[in-house]
Nucleic acid binder design. Structure first.
Lengths: 222, 222
DNA sequence: CCAAAAGTGTTAGTGATACACCCATGT
DNA sequence: ACATGGGTGTATCACTAACACTTTTGG
């Protein structure tokens, strides 16, 4: 296992960035300004620098695109088919991120012509093998919502059970029974009542809850 | 996103190869014959060639090490910390494989000084970050046994329920209740009785079952 | 007839689902 | 007073877990 004398592939990271906006699950895409796939939409990404880890590269790209740090970020899969990039051998390590839509200020420093949020139910045709990457990310995202506490990373410190339920309904694109949902969540002992209720609502003021752990802590609940 | 002008990292694949042998879960390790980590044990692996996909690279390495094809192989995770290899920047795409111990003929063409099966409960100190990779592989392997039908890929076409149960007991390193295990397995409708019973056993001859799907078909049973 | 593993059922507890009405506030 | 979402309990069903004895063969 001596150092390789063969030509090396290039390595990129691509990040599927999800957010919940306008009661919908969105994904951030950029419009390519150069060939190949000029003017097509693509998942944001870029080359891994020689002195940064994969996760650092993903975080850097993410911050360049959305201006946010401290979001949920997870490695997804590495795509390395020989023909996946017409320019040559490019292996891409795919990540997915979940950002809090309130914190995003789009296009901080992007060098791309356009960046836009798309509903996952109305996606354009994508460059490279990005359609495959995105579908894979979506599947994993749903898995994470089902079996971990990622959902809480999208909520403010104090939140109502209805806010939480809304997020699940958007991600899974289906309605849940209010009573059963609450029973389930409360039985996990992950959250606790605060002493406050939400004010200035034109109906019965809902109880505010808080997550019992550090924000950003993701726990398996399998 | 033009072609990178920066120095490129090297890309390797490492494969954690599991097998059940001697009523124990084993993993194949090789003894390094050169620096760095000379004489330490390591997970087998090697450089990805410019004209082969990641999975092809993993299969090639696997066959070089064990002589087997057609085994269960799955991508695990990509490890890319800057300092993980003292020789320079090396990103490794980790895979795990599960081979049928009957089919293995060790060291087909390996260029390494020694290859050996280790019980997962008695592992030596490992080179690089391979301890981390191996523990990750083990966790995923158990997950796969719990939620998919990988176990069947280790059995002959016709097998007894006790054989199946043994495999689970070895992988999870714990005993299961015979009646509950059988009830559970049979309720999944994954296997069916054959017309045969196992012969030449010095006790009541057990029923032989067969998997209802193509061999190597892995199904989620979540 | 003895040793060895195969085969088989019941009960209790736990978690999931389906379902409808009253409550507290703002306007 | 009305509109709006908040909040709550019960019954059924499916799945899990604990547990012990009889059966069939070879030697």
């Amino acid at each position: 296992m001596a150092e390789s004398d063969y030509p090396k592939p290039s390595v990129t990271v691509d990040i599927t960035i999800f957010a919940i906006k306008d009661n919908d699950l969105k994904v951030l895409l950029i419009k390519r300004s150069i060939e190949p796939f000029k003017n097509m939409w693509a998942i944001p990404g870029g080359f891994v620098r020689i002195n940064e880890s994969l996760e650092q590269a993903a975080k850097r790209e993410l911050e360049e695109e959305t201006g946010v740090k401290d979001v949920y970020l997870e490695q997804l899969f590495t795509f390395g088919d020989v023909e996946r990039d017409p320019r040559g051998r490019v292996i891409t390590v795919a990540y997915f991120a979940l950002v809090n839509s309130e914190k995003i200020k789009l296009e901080a420093k992007t060098d791309v012509s356009e960046a836009k949020w798309f509903s996952v139910s109305k996606l354009p045709k994508l460059a490279f093998d990005h359609e495959k990457i995105l579908q894979y990310a979506l599947k994993r995202l749903r898995w994470k919502f089902e079996y971990t506490t990622v959902a809480f990373s999208l909520l403010p410190k104090k939140f109502t059970l209805t806010q939480l339920q809304k997020i699940y309904e958007i991600v899974f694109n289906k309605k849940f029974d209010k009573r059963n949902f609450r029973k389930k969540i409360l039985s996990l002992s992950l959250i606790e009542k605060t002493k406050e209720k939400k004010k200035d609502v034109s109906h019965r003021p809902p109880q505010l809850y808080s997550f019992r752990r550090k924000i950003g802590d993701i726990v398996e609940i399998i």
